[in-house]
Every structure is written in structure tokens, then in C-alpha cells.
């Protein structure tokens, strides 16, 4: 999505190259889905708060429409033998995908003993059913103190 977005914004003269680079940086530094962040940033830049509302709704619209339809059929046929079998094939795949996501995130963010320790402690806390919200909040505060 990102290369397409950058290309269109620059070609139409809506943003400078530097602004699209900043858009990526900001979207990664703020919580929430990357696409929604980037869309809101773009909307504010081009047309203020209402532009942001339009851009955010716009980027969410395909999800809202397609997922509504798929959800209807998914929950309707969830108990059928064929869907159940398909899900039995899909379920073991998900931990692998999360492992790959973790690996990517780890490669980019675990640079020294302290970051590795933060990751290890976070992992143990979440396995022990501490809410990740608190873990992330704590790690952020610790980061301000230690890494600034």
C-alpha cells in the first residue's frame, strides 16, 4: 500500500518527498494500524481535520464493506464440516506467521542486552497473563528514562 500511496501523493503534488518520508516515520511512531495513521496524517496535511476524517474513513471503507460480507458468511457456515476442516488447516499456520512477525520486529529492535532483556521480560509477563497494555506502557516509560 505504501509505495502506491507515496507515488500518487507526490505525482499529484499533494505532498513533497520529504513529507511522505515523515509520514512513514510518524505512522510507525504512533499507536494504531499503520494505514489509518498514514491516512490521517495525509488528510490533515491536505485538508485539515475534515480531510483527516475523510481519509481515515476512506482507508477503512474496503475493510468495513468486505469484512461485513465475509463475516456474515463465515459465522453462518462456521459449523459446517468443510469450514471446520479448513480452519483446522489454518490454525497451525497462525503461530508461524506471528513468529515471523516477531522475528522481523526483533531483528529491527533488539540491539543490545537491555532491549533483549525488555523483550524477554515482556514475553514472560504476557505469558503470565499480565495485560500487554501495561507491558507496553511500562516499556515506553523505561525507554524514556534509559534510551533518550
Amino acid at each position: 500500500m505504501l509505495p502506491v500511496m507515496q507515488q500518487i501523493l507526490i505525482q499529484r503534488g499533494l505532498m513533497t518527498v520529504q513529507e511522505t518520508i515523515d509520514m512513514v516515520a510518524i505512522s510507525q511512531m504512533t499507536p494504531g494500524p499503520f494505514a489509518v495513521n498514514a491516512a490521517t496524517f495525509t488528510g490533515v496535511k491536505i485538508a485539515g481535520i475534515w480531510g483527516a476524517a475523510a481519509a481515515t474513513l476512506g482507508v477503512m471503507m474496503p475493510s468495513l464493506v468486505i469484512t461485513s460480507v465475509v463475516a456474515y458468511y463465515f459465522f453462518r457456515f462456521k459449523e459446517s464440516e468443510i469450514v471446520k476442516s479448513a480452519m483446522r488447516g489454518i490454525r497451525p499456520v497462525i503461530p508461524a506467521l506471528i513468529f515471523a512477525a516477531m522475528w522481523g520486529m526483533g531483528e529491527a529492535s533488539l540491539k543490545d542486552a537491555l532491549t533483549i532483556a525488555i523483550a524477554a521480560v515482556s514475553c514472560v509477563l504476557v505469558v503470565k497473563k499480565i495485560n500487554p497494555v501495561w507491558v507496553i506502557l511500562g516499556a515506553g516509560l523505561l525507554g524514556v528514562v534509559v534510551f533518550r
Binding site: 529492535s109 532491549t115 525488555i118 523483550a119 514475553c123 507496553i136 524514556v144 534510551f147
Partner: peptide, 20 residues
């Protein structure tokens, strides 16, 4: 920037916990 260093490391940890 400092907060992000801590948060990214923690996200890797929470994902590891979820894999487990």
C-alpha cells in the same frame, strides 16, 4: 525516540508470548 526503543522491544516480547 527513547520510548519507541523500549516499546518495539516489548512488542517483540508480547508477540513471542503469543506464539507460545
Amino acid at each position: 525516540a527513547g520510548a519507541m526503543v523500549g516499546i518495539r522491544a516489548a512488542v517483540a516480547g508480547t508477540l513471542a508470548a503469543t506464539v507460545f
